[in-house]
Amino acid sequence: MSDKKNWPLWEIFVRSKNGLEHRHFGSLHASDAEMALENARDVYTRRSEGVSIWVVESSHITASNPEHNGELFEPAADKVYRHPTFYDLPDEVKHM
């Protein structure tokens, strides 16, 4: 076995019902995409957890580096004018 390739890892996303987004459920091993879908069905929807499945080979995911979190995410923190609460309106104004 050791000289052969192992089944790669896949990330599984499941939509629990129509109207909701696919959510990351976990991962599993499979030799190809079809098997990943079938395995995901058998592993992650045994209790009617889903109506749709996405599978992505884990190695195809590019993730941001937490070390860059400062430059990536912190600059957004002080842009409070993007939030409705930044603006002062009299209480009489309704539905806005």
């Binding site: 076995m1 052969k4 390739k5 192992n6 089944w7 030799s31 190809d32 098997m35």
Partner: peptide, 10 residues
């Protein structure tokens, strides 16, 4: 079995 599945996928 695992080897066969991998070979088939390739």
């Amino acid at each position: 079995v695992r080897d066969a599945a991998m070979a088939y996928a390739e």
